[in-house]
Design a protein around this nucleic acid. Structure first.
Length: 522
RNA sequence: GGCGACGUGGCCAAGCGGCUAAGGCAUCGGAUUGCAAAUCCGACAUCCCGGGUUCGAAUCCCGGCGUCGCCUCCA
């Protein structure tokens, strides 16, 4: 279980995962600057790292996962002036939005979410330390990091300083070199500011991550993650600040997730964007266009799709790949999820036990104990699938490959139920039943690693819809009774009419061996 | 212009030099069903193009074409 390999952006290769201080593992993920509502693209990192933490924990590691909240920044200040409300109020609102979205997507593994404004003293002393060591210089109230002093600058993003334009504008005049970047910015009138040795001001963009990761995870920690777009300048600058301040590497493994893209995949021959793609998803607020318009929409998307659907959608693709986001790929993810919900309902029908009440093994060791007690012969195919799943996860957290194994298990379980004709009347002595229960326990174990099916979805498939008032149920009983009589009399015209008319109301009737059930389809 | 990623069946997507190129969606057969739905069985790609390396390449190298990203707002 320990042969995990991770793709390290710094070395551009997959490396064996060997933590610095096992079993402890420290992970820092760059969180949002809370100046606007989150969009679906912001969830890629949190979902994959939530899954990574679950898997590392499963493998026996003790993970500390930090996601920062940057709540002081130029964009926040601009927004504050624009709306005429304090910056802190915007930050509080947008942080709440972010947290609510994380919760919906099942991201609940985060240990610390430090805010930049709560760590001013750490930030200031970090800058002081850099200044003392000769890596930073003050200039008219600002403090800059002197890039030329760091020989390894540019190694992460693979670029040389002379390629860079540097931040232009009025700050350029106070810098020794265009590629130097601000650690501290002096306050202009009307801007939020904190006292510092250099006068009142606020931190530059990158320093909060260096200061807070140091504060919570130490000088060198295991994994630093973020979107590919943060590699430069953000991560390059963080790395420079931290390694120069501590004279030690900041991070052992740099991980960068791919970005999300609207529309369809580009195709040879130039017919990349099919008519429907680009526009139909513009409203979904993951493109730059809609972002600049300030269109939120993740909360609404969650309402339409459910958080689990989105989580599954994100996990279908390997984290380093570009995720193609459009109506089609999204609904496709939903369609395939339904098959799992049906299987889980089937399981409950047969065993009388809810899948969601089954224990989720927190570690591989705990799971193995259970498996050793089970009948290994009939369980063999499922155990082989379990191995394939874990091998995929260990290979740079290949959730896409792992999910494909889940589909194989899905088919295997349905086949098993069909072949053994397992139904409500299956007795506890039925040999097929014990295998089913053991195999489903494995499914529980594996889906738990991905953070899927942890609790029953809001609208459970099946007729026992929680929260449904009594009257619709009673009415449905009447209709189904009438239809039952019609079918018994071979009056299929009537029975089909009932089904068709209900169908147009969004209610599906499903005839099964031991009776008819109904469910809402929209 | 500089740096980088990618191009696998109708769509999405694994694959990281060697079993019959995973899996999902869609489609088409079959089983089941009064008919459907669900479920199961089966069918469906030689991997953008052209060279090269190799006994052997979707996988490595070179050259095209195409798509996308970064180059101080970006997850």
């Amino acid at each position: 279980m320990s042969d995990i390999r991770i793709y390290n952006t710094l070395s551009k290769t997959k490396e064996p995962f060997v933590p610095l201080r096992p079993p402890a593992v420290g992970i820092y993920l760059c969180g949002p600057t809370v100046y606007a509502e989150a969009h679906i693209g912001h969830m890629v990192g949190p979902v994959i790292f939530d899954t990574i933490k679950r898997y590392l924990t499963y493998c026996g590691y003790h993970v500390t996962w930090v996601v920062n909240i940057t709540d002081v920044d130029d964009k926040l200040i601009a927004k504050s002036h624009q709306r005429g409300v304090p910056m802190s109020q915007i930050a509080v609102e947008m942080t709440a939005d972010y947290l609510a979205n994380l919760k919906e997507l099942g991201v609940n593994q985060i240990d610390y979410m430090p805010r930049a404004t709560d760590h001013m003293s750490q930030i200031i002393s970090f800058i002081e330390s850099l200044e003392k060591r000769g890596y930073a210089y003050a200039s008219q109230g600002d403090v800059f990091f002197e890039v030329a002093k760091d020989p390894s600058y540019g190694e992460l993003s693979n670029r040389t300083t002379d390629q860079q334009q540097g931040e232009g504008g009025e700050a350029a005049a106070r810098k020794r070199s265009p590629s130097d970047f601000a650690l501290w910015k002096s306050a202009k009138p009307g801007e939020p500011a904190w006292d510092s040795p250099w006068g009142r001001g606020r931190p530059g963009w990158h320093i909060e991550c260096s200061a807070m990761s140091h504060h919570l995870l130490g000088e060198t920690f295991d994994i630093h993650g973020g979107g590919l777009d943060l590699m430069f300048p953000h991560h390059e600058n963080e790395r420079a600040q931290s390694s120069c301040c501590h004279n030690a590497p900041m991070v052992k493994y740099w991980m960068h997730n791919g970005l999300m893209r609207a529309g369809s995949k580009g195709k040879v021959g130039g017919k990349g964007d099919r008519e429907s793609s680009a526009e139909s998803v513009a409203e979904l607020a993951e493109s730059k266009i809609s972002r600049s318009k300030g269109g939120g929409g993740l909360a609404e998307l969650i309402r339409k799709q459910t958080g689990e659907r989105l989580r599954f959608f994100l996990l279908r693709t390997h984290y380093r790949s570009t995720i193609i986001f459009n109506d089609e790929t999204l609904s496709e993810a939903g369609t395939s999820l339904e098959a799992f919900y049906r299987l889980l309902a089937r399981f409950q029908e047969i065993t009388g036990q809810s899948f969601y009440d089954l224990p989720v093994p927190q570690t591989a060791d705990a799971a193995l104990q259970r498996i050793q007690d089970a009948n290994s012969e009939t369980l063999k195919p499922f155990l082989a699938e379990r191995e394939r799943f874990l091998a995929s996860m260990s290979d740079d957290f290949n959730t896409g490959a792992a999910i494909s194994v889940l589909f194989d298990m899905l088919r295997g379980l349905n086949r098993h139920i069909d072949q053994h004709a397992l139904g409500k009347e299956a007795g506890p002595s039925d040999p097929g039943l014990t295998t089913l229960i053991d195999a489903v326990a494995i499914l529980r174990e594996l889906t738990g690693i991905l953070g899927l099916f942890l609790k029953a979805p809001p609208q459970a498939i099946g007729s026992d819809d929680a929260g449904e008032s009594a009257l619709p149920h009673a009415l449905m009983e009447i209709l189904m009774d009438l239809r039952k009589t019609a079918r018994a009399n071979k009056d299929f015209a009537t029975s089909d009419a009932i089904r068709d008319r209900l169908s147009s109301l969004g209610i599906a009737l499903l005839d099964k061996k031991d009776g008819t059930t109904w469910e809402r389809t929209k």
